[in-house]
Computed example of a mutant assay.
Amino acid sequence: MSAITQASAQVAKTVAVTTGKVANAKSMMIWRPHGNKMFETFSFLPPLSDAEISKQVQYLLNNGWTPCIEFEDSAHAYTDGHGWANMDTSINAGYYDNRYWVMWKLPMYGCQNPDEVIAEINTCIKCFPDCYVRVAGFDNIKQVQCSAFLAHRPASEAACAVDQRQVQG
């Protein structure tokens, strides 16, 4: 065998070596772009229990943030486009341009107990059962929203099951 043929054979052997990435490509999933509405932190999870919500509210309070409860119906809670900006925000839950929810009462200034927030969330849900409800945490020094999470999703707007949020390519 000539040196050129041996070199070609060596290159062929090198190309045939795999890192396993090709085999793993079939296990990769593609995000389903439609009917996959997500809101805020944790909205991809099953509904949070009162105990889990309480822990998140305690986190807000520990950081000195003021809890604020907001709600909105499904027609207005989710924004696909933004007028002149013509932005599709269907996969950008954290993008807030022109997405405002109705505030439930006033922000809970001076609140020190997560149970107070849970009680207000439950009252909001009782009054508006067909609305999404979220809890936001506002920093009064920076004057910005620092955190928010979905506390209630109406039964008519059940989240897409975790195993249906992506498709195998």
Rank of each mutant, 00 (worst) to 15 (best):
F138T: 03
S43A: 15
T79R: 14
D50I: 13
C146N: 09
C146L: 06
T79H: 05
A25W: 13
Y78R: 09
K37E: 14
A25G: 09
S43G: 05
E40I: 04
F42Y: 13
Y59C: 03
E70D: 08
Y96I: 01
M29F: 15
K55A: 15
N98A: 07
P154W: 00
D80Y: 13
G64F: 00
A136D: 02
N92Q: 14
N62K: 08
P114N: 06
A158D: 14
K142I: 06
E157H: 12
T66N: 11
K21T: 05
I69Q: 00
A148R: 07
L45T: 02
P33V: 11
W65E: 11
Q58H: 04
I118M: 05
K21D: 10
T123K: 10
E120W: 03
C160V: 13
N98P: 00
S27Q: 15
I69V: 11
I91Q: 13
T79F: 02
F71K: 01
L45I: 02
N62L: 08
M28W: 14
K142T: 04
A25R: 08
A77Q: 00
V144C: 13
F42W: 08
V102E: 06
V102H: 04
P107I: 01
H152P: 00
K37D: 12
F138D: 05
T19K: 07
E52K: 15
H82G: 01
N113W: 03
R32I: 07
P47Q: 14
D88S: 14
C127T: 12
P33F: 12
L60D: 15
D80A: 04
C127L: 13
T18G: 15
C160T: 14
N86R: 09
A151F: 02
E40T: 10
G137L: 00
T66A: 06
Y100N: 03
K21G: 12
N86W: 03
K37W: 15
K21L: 09
I125K: 04
L106R: 10
A51I: 15
Y78E: 02
C68A: 09
T123L: 12
A159K: 11
C124D: 07
G64W: 01
R32D: 15
I91T: 08
